[in-house]
Amino acid sequence: MSVYDILKDWGITNYQVIDKKAIEEITLGASILATGGGGDPEIGLLWAYKVLEEGKDIVMIDPMDIPDDILVASPACLGAALVLTEKPPNEEVLNKAIETLETYMGKKLQATIPLECGGVNSTVAYAVAGELGLPVIDVDGMNRAFPELQMTSWATSGVHASPTVSTDDRMNTTVIDTQDDDLMAESIARKVAMSYGGISWVATYTMTGADVKRTSILNSQSIAWDVGKAVLEARKGHNDPVEQILESIKNTRNIEGYRVFNGKITDIQREFGGEMNKGFSLGKVIMEGIGDYKGQTAELDFQNEWLNLRVDNELKCVTPDLIAIVDIETGEPIRTDIMRYGYRGSIILISAHERMRTEKGLEAFGPRYFGYDFDYVPVEKLNEKQKQEAK
């Protein structure tokens, strides 16, 4: 049965065929929304290109069109982003994880869902869907990237990460089932990834179509797609990519984004993803202002992803709201795993999706969870003065 047979069986006639140009745009947009994390986008992108070159179809569908009783899951990468570049996957690894998950569940998957907007974990869901002849659904669990498995709108809305199947490039496979304890699932999955050498490939978050609609960040892939299109159009027309990104977010989500800083990286305090850090890359970055921001200093905390931003010691953004640093001229995202002294970028702030701002969400991935001694304050409140001045 082909993906089109599945759609016909579900009565779906409205779908989007994802070609090479589309997957490039989606990957770029997701990498920008990934808040500095999500891994190397080239790995997932090249995999998706390979699937398309083999004549397989990648098809994306609207979440509101899917049947309530189907079974879906998220194929993803878990572990240290720096290790990923040294140990890229092949299709057999995730195929093995999915087959094991299907055996454990006693039911075949009928669609894939991206775990996050991330350089790898968005695109992997498309590649796997194409490999297996399944549709990919226009959702994810964050509309950004986060370092831990339980940091999703799914988990905070009662859909759990268990069972999770973890596989490595030697086909070692582990089934993790902690029932409704998502923190325990994350802890075990992290230890497994470290035992595998720092990286693992997982099939996780099995849920029904009804759960997808109730708990996901709906149409998040389309949001990323529009951001990617906007940046590529800006490059073509030699326009300001930051303005194009902010306009795209305004059009798709009807919210204001903020450009709050232009600067260059002058200091990096970073601990790489070793055993002591559970595979995370974490630390702090200092940027000195340039142009209109000359004389100002920006300080960013990160754990795989950017978490908090201070400008001249004034808090400007805290997790789960989004912080993106993009190249001033090209709009290319500057990730935490590739940043270097002297890199120049614009800092953009975007409010998190409302499903990420719930009370349970802030407990699971707000600033206090990461050990910071302050409460969450919405980015729009922290930047009220700038918004008023812009008017």
Rank of each mutant, 00 (worst) to 15 (best):
L149R: 06
T103H: 07
I245G: 02
C317R: 05
E389A: 09
Y15F: 14
I18W: 00
L246S: 00
G11D: 11
K96M: 13
G342V: 00
L183K: 07
G345F: 00
F302W: 01
K229P: 04
K107M: 13
S346P: 11
E54Q: 10
D226W: 00
D240T: 03
D373G: 03
T35H: 10
P367H: 03
F374W: 01
R344N: 04
N95D: 06
R357I: 02
G106D: 03
R310A: 10
L349E: 10
P333W: 00
L7G: 12
M60D: 05
D292F: 09
G44Y: 02
E25I: 02
F370Y: 14
N383R: 08
V124M: 14
I323G: 14
L315H: 09
L315G: 00
A22P: 05
K213F: 10
T297M: 12
K391R: 10
R214M: 03
T330I: 03
M142W: 04
I113P: 02
I223C: 00
A364R: 09
L46F: 04
T173H: 09
E305Y: 04
K278N: 15
H160G: 06
E25Y: 07
L71I: 14
E42Q: 06
W10V: 05
V326M: 00
T266E: 01
M287I: 03
V17T: 12
T156W: 03
A364I: 08
T85A: 15
L282Q: 10
L362G: 13
L307R: 11
S351C: 04
I61T: 04
A81M: 15
V192L: 01
E354H: 14
D57L: 08
E186G: 01
D5S: 15
Y205E: 06
Q179L: 14
I188W: 14
V17K: 13
D182N: 06
L78A: 13
S216R: 07
P135L: 12
G55N: 13
L362M: 11
D182R: 01
D62L: 13
L149W: 08
Y376N: 06
G371C: 03
K360C: 12
V51D: 02
N262Q: 11
M287P: 11
L46C: 02
T173A: 08
D292Q: 14
L382T: 08
E354V: 06
V72W: 11
